[in-house]
Nucleic acid binder design. Structure first.
Lengths: 197, 197
DNA sequence: CGAAAATTTGACATGACTCAACTGGAGTGG
DNA sequence: CCACTCCAGTTGAGTCATGTCAAATTTTCG
């Protein structure tokens, strides 16, 4: 039996952090399942338990939170080679605060909670992989907080455009506005001001 | 030789996540140094390399960022049993974006970058400890982002007061205001409105 | 082509900021 | 032990960045 070809990008992602033997790759592939989703389909709905963590093989998704007034707030975007999960729900197996929805047709490599725990036992070096990955995610998250505190909407938008030109192209503006913490109308006005920058 | 008594709280903290043998505790204690700081002293200055990650044995600190206009923005607070570090600077050994300053006299258990790497080799289960710790930190960070996006200043303040009553007592209001992303004056006005809640 | 979704635009509203003055401790030194 | 200063916190008047609402326009896609 061979490592399934479809999870190749996941293997490569992991090899950034540690070197995996062919045997380990094979084990990993047995605990990972690939699944396709259609555009607009939900991978997770607020209130449900987040059963899997998903690595994006192909496509684009976003997480969002809906408050009591029904307002939507975008928590994150994910494209190829990113992970997407409601981590708190996944770890504690408690009801999720976030929705995860596909913005395009997607192929995801998914690991169930159960399998993630087994994988840490069978391939201990994955502890390191996920530790390092979380370090990056945490740094990114901290930087976003400070940007939100210290910069005006216009600068946050320009930074975003510069840092994620691809996402800017692939997702609708009103989701980017929400991610940046502003209204769609205001982002539109910022863009009008900004076309010559 | 015995495990140094002063790092007891760190050992206990780690034992939340994994069980360490006495030998492992001893190894750990050899790679950790305790250091005292005075109130107002800097553990790290923006632009310097963050050489250590610090576990708070005693005291209270905050991290903050100063932008080009000279405005200060509080990134985080840390009290007993919390870690404080500029993670990005620590990992990559690049100039820090953040200052870390003591708000009280502090005792910190510190691990140098070099020693942290050695410790992961000597006590592999620490990979798990830091992975789990980072999971928590990341979840916390995500929650803060969504709160900042979805809640008005008044609610953010009330949430903060509820979640960290101790920090609210120990640190000056103007730092809390900065952490919440509002001005000291506006926080003062919120408090005036809020005393009967 | 037609309907729904996304974006733009304008008039008006408001939450939060700025600046400046004032109050009230907490040191500090004479 | 008083006088002085310094810093945190409060208050008020005026302002600005961003939000709200509604209508017009453009884009997407069945």
């Amino acid at each position: 039996m061979e490592t399934k070809r479809e999870i190749k990008p996941l293997i490569e992602y992991i090899n950034q952090f540690v070197v995996m033997s062919p045997e380990e790759e094979l084990i990993l592939s047995k605990y990972v399942t690939c699944r396709n989703y259609l555009k607009k389909q939900y991978v997770l709905q607020q209130g449900d338990i987040c059963t899997h963590e998903s690595f994006v093989i192909k496509g684009c998704l976003n997480t969002f939170f809906v408050n009591d007034e029904g307002d939507k707030f975008v928590g994150s975007f994910a494209v190829e080679n990113w992970w997407v999960v409601d981590l708190e729900s996944f770890i504690n197996q408690t009801p999720a605060d976030f929705n995860i929805q596909c913005l395009e047709n997607c192929t995801l490599a998914q690991i169930s909670r159960q399998n993630s725990l087994l994988l840490y036992e069978k391939i201990p070096k994955l502890e390191r992989v996920f530790r390092m990955m979380l370090q990056q995610a945490f740094c990114f998250s901290q930087r976003r907080i400070v940007n939100n505190l210290s910069k005006a909407a216009k600068d946050r938008y320009l930074d975003f455009k510069k840092q994620f030109p691809e996402i800017e192209r692939r997702v609708p503006q009103y989701l980017i506005a929400s991610y940046l913490g502003i209204t769609r109308e205001f982002l539109s006005k910022i863009k009008a001001q900004t076309i010559f920058d």
